[in-house]
Design a protein around this nucleic acid. Structure first.
Lengths: 119, 119, 119, 119
DNA sequence: GTGGTCTAGACCACC
DNA sequence: GTGGTCTAGACCACA
């Protein structure tokens, strides 16, 4: 995980957790690493991690047990799926299709790329 | 042209010109509107337009004739295509494919969406 | 640092950093002063400094860590040398030689001037 | 003569005449081409040429016979030499020497370049 | 008329 | 605290 990206760090951390939930690597009531632990591991300011956790808590995807830590919320998978799907369909897909037209690319081109990545 | 909040205005203006070039609405040596003209038309500060033009000039997509204005550079189409294609393949496509997997969508789903948009 | 009128301020600031890099006063991964700090020190508008920094970042001579500041990029020295050398050889040297011919001066005259400056 | 240069067009035209004077291609009381003629030849706005001529007239290097045209002034050669020499020594030489130091170049390097250009 | 630079000041997201 | 964008308005050189 490197942060050369244009996306803000705290949202990249958010995405990291959302992905792990969608991959079922994180399940309901699993405890996730503490803010400090993540901060050290990613060499990032704890405030930044805190912000990610607040965001996820705000979306009811994780919850906090005071003095103990953060845990995956019940129904986290479905919420995550909804969240990502909505964002994907409303934001990414339209611009993606527009771009494909401008560049005169076909859906099959994407499939080829997809296959190339697998190999 | 109305601005969405996510992207900075000056880059949206850049994109506007890049698209027009790709659509062949703007061809080599065509003069584009003056900084002030665009500023008035888009109800935007001239500095903001200037910034877009500087960006495009830096990428060799437009050039300036002193005291006269900006013009589409020779080879602008190819450069634009390269620029957009590279950006698309390196940034958008990978995250798009990843997202498709996470959401368990197929390329055919995209094609359907594409067809829906046409109607 | 005082500004002469001929060159724009932001480019003089750029040159200031390029020189410090060439003199090895600034090395890879060194943090450089913040935009505001420079602005205050040079009694210049922050936007002007920002412009210099953007320019240098665009040339891959400095890079940004979000919320932290700007740092000298890896390979900055070589890039700077290339940049300056190219500019020097393509712009300054030819007109300089031409001028020497027109004024019927020899290279030795330059060396004399050079020695005078040393003393 | 192309105007991609950063130097303003009217000063490039000025330089063109100064050079011809120094090369003795233009001598005292020679008539120079009319503003309109130059403008057409260089595909430039007549105002721009006019500006060059005014500049040269102001420096007493050319003079005007009303209704007839512009002519090289008496003593033009010496004045031109002074003008160029002063500019050269005060502006170009110091920055040139500084640059040579930064790039760790020697005067001999310049001589080599000079010889290469001859061949 | 054209671009180009600069200032002053504001607001924002992010670390 | 950091950068990044934008506005408003000014001034300048140039064609």
């Amino acid at each position: 995980m490197d942060f050369n990206n244009k996306k803000s760090i705290y949202l990249q951390i958010v995405d990291y957790f959302l992905e792990r939930i969608l991959r079922l690597e994180l399940k309901e009531n699993d405890r996730i690493a503490s803010v400090r632990e993540i901060a050290v591991r990613l060499e990032v300011n704890p405030n930044t991690v805190m912000r990610s956790y607040s965001y996820l808590q705000d979306k009811d995807i994780i919850f906090n047990k005071r003095g103990i830590g953060y845990f995956i919320a019940v129904g986290a998978f479905d919420k995550t799926l909804d969240l990502k799907k909505e964002e994907f369909l409303k934001e990414e897909v339209p611009s993606f299709i527009k771009m494909m037209h401008l560049l005169k690319m076909q859906c099959s081109d994407i499939e080829n790329l997809q296959n190339n990545l697998k190999n």
